[in-house]
Simulated assay, not measured.
Amino acid sequence: MNAYEYLLSYNIKPSVQRIAIMDYLLKHHTHPCIDEIYLALCKDIPTLSKTTVYNTLKLFIEHGAARMLTIDERNACFDGDTSMHAHFQCKACGKIYDIPMEPESEEIESLSKNGFQIEETHHYYKGICPECREKKHEN
């Protein structure tokens, strides 16, 4: 599915900026922050502003087309993958990885049985990624 169709599937009216930002999120699984998205797109879209990127991402989140991650205390990061998954941030290089997650945990089942309606979950792990661990052992 391309960015245009993806936006329509979430009832978001496509515009040049919205398509470009969603396309970036769907193609770059790096969990970018607003500055990264802006810098990547401003050359091709000279009228783009950081405010537009911020407002567009906010719209995507409100419609469920993207997720905001707060795993990095310094920057909010954004993810175009809205499927159920966890995140791991390396404390050495700062990279954020997608981690598979079981959709139905005992916690979720227990909450549901007690009348809670879960609309989103955020599972964050922090540590050292395999690449950084390997580099550390080489030194």
Rank of each mutant, 00 (worst) to 15 (best):
H31Q: 14
S15A: 11
A20D: 04
I45E: 06
T30C: 14
Y6H: 15
L26Y: 04
D23F: 09
N2Y: 10
P14Y: 02
Y38H: 05
S15H: 07
Y6D: 08
D44C: 07
K27S: 08
D23N: 12
E36Q: 11
Q17L: 04
E5F: 13
L25D: 06
Y38V: 06
I19W: 00
C42F: 05
Y6G: 04
Q17E: 14
N11E: 09
Q17N: 05
E36I: 05
N11G: 12
H28N: 13
K43G: 12
T30Q: 12
H28S: 00
L8C: 14
D23Y: 08
I45P: 03
I12T: 10
V16C: 11
A3W: 06
A40P: 07
Q17I: 07
I12H: 10
Y4V: 12
H28W: 08
S15L: 10
H31E: 11
C42D: 09
D35L: 00
L7N: 02
M22T: 08
Y24S: 05
P14K: 07
C33P: 09
A40W: 03
Y38T: 04
L41M: 08
A20Q: 12
I45W: 03
L41F: 03
H31L: 12
H31T: 12
I45L: 11
K43T: 08
L26Q: 05
P14F: 00
S15P: 01
L8R: 15
S15N: 10
Q17F: 09
I19R: 02
H31S: 12
I12N: 10
S15F: 02
L25W: 03
E5V: 07
I45V: 04
Y24K: 06
H29Y: 11
T30P: 05
Y6K: 14
I21K: 07
N11P: 12
N2H: 15
I34Q: 04
Y4E: 15
D23W: 04
H29V: 06
I37F: 00
E36N: 02
A40C: 11
C33A: 14
N2E: 15
I19D: 05
L7R: 02
I12Q: 06
I21T: 07
L7T: 05
L8H: 08
K27M: 02
E36H: 03
K13V: 02
L7A: 10
H28R: 13
C42Q: 12
D35E: 13
N2T: 06
N2W: 13
I37N: 01
L39N: 12
K27C: 02
L26S: 01
L8T: 14
Q17D: 15
L7I: 11
N11H: 10
P32M: 05
C33E: 06
Y6A: 09
